[in-house]
C-alpha cells in the first residue's frame, strides 16, 4: 500500500506561497505526486505552479485505461502533458504583462508497483532515501550546477555564487523545453522525497535522511522537515511530498 504526505508551507519571510504540491491517485492504479515551485512576476509564480499542478492532476485523472499502460506509455503521457502545461503557461506569460517572466519548476513522480518514473525540470528535487543512503535522483537545472558539473567552479564557489538563483530550465518561461526522465526502484524500506529548494537549500542530506528514516509516522516526518527548514531561516516557501510504498506491510511482518 502506498502512503504519502503532502506539506507545503509559506516559510517565514515570503508573503506568498508560490509552491504547489499535490498527489493524485487512480483507484487500483498508479499515483502521481507533483511538486512545483513558481517564480517571476507580480502574480506569475503562484499562478504558474498551481496551474501546472492542476493541469497535471486533471489530465492524469482523465487517462484512458490506466491499468493497460506500460512504462513507455506513461513516459510519453508525462512528456506530452508537461509540454502542454508549458505551452499553456508560456501563452499566458506572452499575452499578459502581469504574468510576464513567470515559470515554475516541476517534478512529477509517477509511482506504480515498486517503480517510479520521475519527470524533472528546474531545481526542485527528488530523492530516494533509506537507512543506508540518500540519493539525489534529479540534477538541478541551475546556472551554478552546470558550472559545477563542468568543473569551472568548486562546491564552495557554487554555494556563494551570486547567480545561484538562476535556473536554466523552467516550465512556462520558454517556448520549448525538454524535461529529464529518471527511473527509480522502490522497496519497503525506501522513501521517495520530492521537495522544493526551500527545503534542500536549508536542510542538508544527512539531516533529511535522519528525519525520514527515524521511527514515527509519515506525517510527523514531513512536518518535521518543514519545521527544520523554517528554524534554519525559512527564507523561501517549503514544500515536501514524502511517500513510502508499504509502511503498513512492514508493521504486519
Amino acid at each position: 500500500m502506498l502512503r504519502f504526505e503532502v506539506v507545503t508551507d509559506i516559510g517565514k519571510k515570503r508573503t506568498v506561497n508560490e509552491d504547489s504540491a499535490a498527489v493524485f491517485a487512480i483507484q487500483d492504479g498508479p499515483t502521481l505526486a507533483v511538486v512545483a515551485d513558481g517564480m517571476g512576476g507580480h502574480r506569475g509564480g503562484d499562478y504558474a505552479s498551481s496551474t501546472a499542478v492542476r493541469i497535471l492532476g486533471e489530465q492524469f485523472m482523465k487517462v484512458d485505461g490506466p491499468s493497460s499502460m506500460e512504462e513507455e506509455d506513461w513516459k510519453e503521457w508525462l512528456l506530452e502533458t508537461v509540454l502542454h502545461v508549458n505551452r499553456t503557461l508560456f501563452d499566458v506569460a506572452e499575452s499578459d504583462d502581469e504574468y510576464k517572466g513567470m515559470g515554475t519548476t516541476l517534478d512529477a513522480v509517477l509511482l506504480y508497483g515498486n517503480k517510479g518514473l520521475v519527470t524533472h525540470i528546474g531545481d526542485s528535487r527528488v530523492y530516494t532515501i533509506n537507512r543506508n543512503e540518500i540519493l539525489q535522483i534529479t540534477k538541478d537545472h541551475s546556472f551554478v550546477n552546470i558550472l559545477l558539473d563542468s568543473g569551472e567552479i568548486t562546491e564552495e564557489e557554487a554555494a556563494r555564487h551570486p547567480q545561484r538563483n538562476w535556473i536554466m530550465r523552467a516550465v512556462g518561461s520558454e517556448k520549448s523545453i525538454m524535461p529529464d526522465f529518471y527511473q527509480i526502484q522502490l522497496d519497503e524500506q525506501t522513501y521517495v522525497l520530492i521537495c522544493t529548494d526551500g527545503l534542500s537549500n536549508k536542510v542538508d542530506n544527512e539531516q533529511i535522511q535522519a528525519i525520514v528514516t527515524s521511527d514515527g509516522d509519515l506525517h510527523d516526518k514531513a512536518v518535521k522537515l518543514v519545521e527544520l527548514a523554517n528554524e534554519l531561516g525559512g527564507e523561501d516557501n517549503i514544500s515536501v511530498i514524502l511517500a513510502n510504498s508499504s509502511a503498513s506491510e512492514v508493521s504486519q511482518q
Partner: peptide
C-alpha cells in the same frame, strides 16, 4: 538587483 534570493528563469536574467 540580481542579488535577490528569488529564483529567476532564463527569460528574465
Amino acid at each position: 538587483l540580481s542579488a535577490t534570493a528569488h529564483t529567476k528563469t532564463n527569460s528574465v536574467i
